[in-house]
Amino acid sequence: MRPPAQNAELALLLEVAGTPKPGNVDRRRDLEELRFEHFLAGAVGARDGLEMAADGASVGAAFERAVGGMAAQGGDNTQFGALLLLVPLVRAARNELSQPVVESVVEGTTVADAAAFYRAFEHVDVFVSDPPAEMEPLDVRRGSDAVPVLEERGLTLFDVLDRSVPGDDVAREWSHGFERSFLAAQRLADASGTPSERTASVFLSLLADRPDTLVVKRHGEVTAREVTDRAAELHERDALETDPDSVKAFADELVGRGVNPGTTADVTAAGLFIALERECLEI
């Protein structure tokens, strides 16, 4: 059995290799400023931080190291959200990779973990919405400048992410027991085909479940709902099997429009890690 950090790195690699994943980088599609190779390099660069989590380091410190290593590869923000899910999952895997254990890991984070999370934003350019006026002192784009406010208010990393729900489905995983990540893992186990085919299928199913919050932030709720409805229609008629060209056309269309369901990709990566750890996805 592979060690958890290796499975986490492999999950990042399998996620980007899944094809087609509408709107996202995959083996056949690049975005304007992000290429497939950037994601491969980002996964490799994040390895030290994932190893830290596997060795028992705090979630914040491991996440900051993973993001710094990812960013140093030249692709800037390739897997920020995925790492925010994978680091606590890897940490939980030291004991038992279950929802109660990962809930305990995230609920046990500290103010120091929150400070490390804020410093991680100094490594990369992450798209975030403007906060309401009363939350400006805690705008993550302030990076380490916001740390005194975190310390003054005694906010842990769990507190910070819990305040981002609704509106951010990566944060929602933290406050809802990683329910979609574990659901994705079960769907991967139940799916058929190669790992790449299973990844594409599960990505489409997750996109069909609910609007992608990154799409909401960048393009608005109407566009996000349109994307989800289209994904649901394709998923319901099993288009990846019966009409793969229609899914490929949808993927190309979203890339052409600059609509990137990146949060769905993050949850897919987390599901891949859980499936690999449970040995229900063979490579």
Rank of each mutant, 00 (worst) to 15 (best):
F63R: 05
F63T: 04
V67F: 08
A71H: 07
A71I: 06
A71G: 05
A72M: 07
G75T: 03
Q79E: 07
G81I: 10
G81K: 10
A82M: 12
L83S: 07
L83P: 02
L84S: 05
L85N: 08
P88Q: 06
V90Q: 12
R91V: 00
E96V: 11
L97A: 04
Q99R: 15
Q99T: 13
V101A: 14
V101F: 03
V102G: 14
V102T: 13
E103K: 11
V106C: 08
G108W: 07
V111S: 11
V111L: 12
A112I: 11
A112K: 13
D113P: 11
A114M: 03
A115Q: 06
A115W: 03
Y118Q: 02
R119A: 15
R119K: 10
A120H: 13
E122Q: 15
V124Y: 02
D125I: 14
D125G: 14
F127S: 15
V128L: 10
V128R: 13
S129L: 12
S129G: 15
S129Q: 14
S129I: 06
S129R: 15
D130M: 09
P131V: 11
P131D: 06
P132M: 09
P132S: 11
P132H: 02
E134V: 00
M135L: 13
M135I: 00
P137E: 00
L138W: 00
V140H: 02
R141N: 05
R142L: 12
G143I: 14
G143L: 12
